[in-house]
Design a binder for these strands. Structure first.
Lengths: 132, 132, 132, 132
DNA sequence: TTTT
DNA sequence: TTTT
């Protein structure tokens, strides 16, 4: 059991890249507000790195933009990598299994909030090289 | 919504420290097996940093040891800190809200696997300085 | 571990009642769409009974209306009761621990989708008689 | 989003049946302890109906027995049916998507608690007639 | 580096 | 009994 469920807003537009074998990978940072913590000061959100693969990656690239609110269902992955200075570092990211769009950016006034699109990703397992 | 649910084994005994204001903080790494990913090679688990506060921290210190299997229910937190070389780094950790002990270490043969203790922690919010 | 997380729309306005000891209880049905199942025919949603207690109940009564989309975080409870014909029946319901409002009904055009209110309930445990 | 995560013990051996089209369906009741509620009296667990389909159903039939502890990850489904007296009733059940075996029944003393098998089911969608 |  |  390794399950993560987050509701937040995209802190930036998703970036979509491709592995050497041609798989799509989308990545973006999700701003997840903390309630009760930090007041409305500056540091009141967790900025969580999200990764999506293949069909889900493409859906992200085509449908998500900065500021949009989504629900991400995935698993927490800790990846190791070697930094430029030769030291070993670890980075945590959430590998999305499905993403529910809780609103659409630029929707016409008449249908605002009426959308309920779900996107499901195949569960791609870790240590696939992410091309960035 | 910021929810994380993990089942894994303690990769080490918990360390319990105290903040300047006297709050207990327990920390340990949880080894969460990946199924289907990485084969049975070396890299088949995510090593996730876990933090627990106050009463829950003390329960961890008193009842958990390396190798024990637990279920952690908490939230994902991204903390920033300044590294020794002056660069800013980010670390992810799961702040436990409750921990369910799925087995007891050193249980007598007769009751192995029959325990079901739950520990609930108050939800302590972030950016409290962790003393380590 | 008994955790339920649902995103759906209120199928009706919440009803708020009070126990003999004066505790508020809100109840409503949540329509949770099924994706991939049942097509867009009639039977494409699960209608899940939700119960909230005390302060959370009052927040529901004051802020939620039919059609509104919410995220409910709670636990699944099975209650037994005696039907009119004397037979024993079981009813399942989700006891809400927190509810996140994913949209506001009747919001002005300018701020639609910008709300992010969380409501947390004390975890009231079962077999409290629900007054209905 | 329709997610349920439960840890409990099988209240009975699973029953495996087959639909007319030949799909396997396993069903059993899971006893999920309530902590803090009901004291250690009689009514201190929720008895939750669980359903699993196809390959996962067979794994349940072959590997699970009464009393065994498992973690069930699934979704909550409300089904309508007509009772013998002609009235319409609703029943809630959790459709398992994966089941983690937290212990093995009859394990030898030496490996008790060391098992960590995961079983994943295809997500079969509702209103398939369950043959019972 | 960051969302609202 | 039901939401969009």
């Amino acid at each position: 059991m390794n399950k993560v469920i987050l509701v937040g807003r995209l802190a930036q537009d998703p970036e979509v890249r491709y592995t050497q074998s041609g798989k799509a990978v989308a990545s973006f940072t999700l701003a997840v507000n903390r309630f009760g913590g930090g007041g409305q000061g500056q540091n009141n959100a967790d900025f969580v790195p999200i990764v999506a693969w293949e069909k889900l990656a493409e859906t992200c690239g085509n449908n998500l933009t900065k500021g949009q609110r989504v629900l991400v269902d995935g698993r927490l992955q800790i990846r190791s990598y070697e930094a430029n200075d030769g030291t070993k570092r670890r980075v945590a990211e959430v590998v999305a299994q499905s993403i529910e769009f809780l609103e659409r950016k630029q929707a016409s006034a008449s249908d605002a909030g009426n959308i309920d699109i779900n996107s499901f990703g195949k569960d791609v397992f870790p240590d696939e090289e992410i091309p960035f």
